[in-house]
Simulated scan of single mutants.
Amino acid sequence: MSPTAEEIVRVAAHWIDRGIRLDTRTLAAELGISRTTLFRRVGNREDLLGDTLWYMGDRTLKAAQRDWQTKHGSAVRDPDGQLRCLEVMRRYRADIAGNHGFRQFLNDEPAVAIRVLTDPQGRVQPRVMTAHVELLRRDVEDGGFVPVVSLENLSYAIVRLGEAFLYSDVLASRAPDLAAASTLLGALVEGRVTAPEPTVGL
Score class of each variant (00 low, 15 high):
A172W: 01
E152K: 13
R174P: 00
V146Y: 00
L171E: 00
V193D: 06
V159K: 08
G143F: 02
L154R: 12
L154N: 08
S168K: 07
F145N: 05
P176T: 04
V170R: 10
G144Q: 05
G143D: 02
R137S: 13
S155C: 04
D177C: 00
P147D: 00
A180Y: 03
L188Q: 10
R137Q: 15
V148E: 14
G162C: 05
E163Q: 15
R160T: 14
L154V: 11
E190R: 06
L161W: 01
V159Q: 08
N153L: 11
S155E: 05
A157V: 12
L185D: 09
G143S: 04
G162D: 04
A187E: 14
S150F: 00
L188N: 06
V149Y: 00
L171G: 04
R192W: 00
R192G: 06
E152V: 15
L178T: 08
S150E: 01
A175K: 12
R137T: 13
G143L: 03
L161D: 10
S173A: 10
L136Q: 03
A179D: 15
S182W: 10
L185M: 15
R174S: 05
S150M: 05
G191R: 12
S150W: 00
L171W: 01
N153K: 13
A180S: 13
V193F: 05
N153H: 08
L178K: 05
R138Y: 14
R160V: 09
D139K: 01
N153Q: 13
L154T: 10
Y167M: 10
A181P: 12
S155D: 08
A164E: 09
T183W: 01
L151E: 04
A157F: 07
S155W: 04
D169W: 02
N153S: 13
E141P: 08
L184T: 13
D139H: 04
L166M: 06
V193G: 01
R138D: 14
I158K: 11
D139V: 04
L171A: 02
Y167A: 09
L151M: 08
L166V: 09
V140T: 05
V193N: 05
E190A: 00
Y156M: 09
D169L: 03
D139M: 02
V159G: 10
A175C: 07
R160N: 09
V146L: 02
E163V: 10
R174E: 00
S150A: 05
V189Y: 02
L151F: 06
S150V: 08
E152A: 11
A157C: 09
N153T: 13
A181H: 14
N153D: 10
A181Y: 08
E141L: 15
L136M: 01
L171N: 03
S150R: 12
S155I: 05
I158W: 06
V159P: 14
A179E: 15
L151I: 09
E141H: 12
D139E: 03
L188K: 06
R192V: 06
Y167E: 01
D169N: 10
D177K: 01
E190W: 00
A179L: 06
E152N: 11
A172P: 09
V148P: 12
P176Q: 02
V149E: 05
V140Y: 01
L154I: 10
D177Q: 01
L166Q: 11
L188Y: 01
L166D: 07
L185I: 15
V193K: 07
L161P: 10
D139I: 02
V146G: 06
G143I: 03
R138P: 12
